[in-house]
């Protein structure tokens, strides 16, 4: 636990993660410049580059991650310099000619580089991203500690950029508890004109 604490603190201090969390609630919330979503209840959000992390109990217990437009050549998730020696160099990158199976592959490679074990995706199918056409798949992985986690992701490539909503949580109790709520929120995703 102390190890967790020291490493987390150092990672945050060095990564300039002094952003912290802010409250998001109400009818509609903007995500980046291109998207918006209707929160169900009050959430805590943290903004990291083109990612937004929404959580109720803290990212270790559930993460609803919005990728608000990754452009060609960009990684799926930003890599703080405290966590990676050469932040951008070996990152798996999005390319604007990717097909949905390649996006699922990108997520697996990204999670694996961040330290997840046995990351797998399944059930990749066409699905609505809000009201637009997109794709959806399920995720399973084991966290560094050995805690088994589950999730799903919805995505869409629009105007050569990748937009995603990725929900992950420990399999025990947390994933199921908020899955319905997250599903309903994702239905409310809209692209701004």
């Amino acid at each position: 636990m102390k190890r967790f604490l020291i490493l987390a603190t150092v990672a945050l201090a060095l990564g300039g993660c002094a952003n912290g969390f802010s409250l998001v609630a109400g009818e509609r919330a903007k995500i980046g410049t291109a998207m918006s979503v209707a929160p169900e209840g009050a959430w805590n959000r943290q903004i990291l580059g083109n990612n937004e992390i929404w959580t109720l109990d803290g990212p270790a217990l559930q993460t609803l991650r919005f990728v608000a437009g990754a452009a060609d050549g960009e990684p799926l998730m930003p890599r703080p310099s405290a966590t990676f020696n050469e932040p951008q160099k070996d990152a798996p990158k999005f390319h604007d000619n990717m097909t949905p199976p390649e996006v699922a592959e990108l997520l697996v490679a990204t999670f694996t580089q961040f330290g997840a074990n046995n990351t797998e995706t399944k059930g990749l199918k066409p699905a609505k991203f809000g009201v637009d056409e997109g794709f959806r798949f399920e995720i399973a992985f084991t966290a560094r500690s050995g805690l088994e986690c589950q999730g799903f992701a919805v995505g869409r490539i629009k105007d050569k950029k990748l937009y995603m909503a990725i929900y992950t949580a420990p399999k025990l109790f947390f994933y199921e508890r908020d899955r319905g709520r997250v599903d309903r929120m994702i239905e409310t995703l809209r692209f701004e004109a």
């Binding site: 967790f4 604490l5 969390f21 270790a60 966290a143 805690l147 025990l172």
Partner: peptide, 25 residues
């Protein structure tokens, strides 16, 4: 369950005691 507790305990330490990372909710 023990690993889940580790995650919960760690989250309490990080978000309840460390002001810069408090969760508004």
């Amino acid at each position: 369950l023990i690993k889940l507790h580790e995650a919960v305990g760690g989250s309490i330490l990080l978000h309840q005691y460390f002001q810069p990372l408090q969760l508004p909710t």
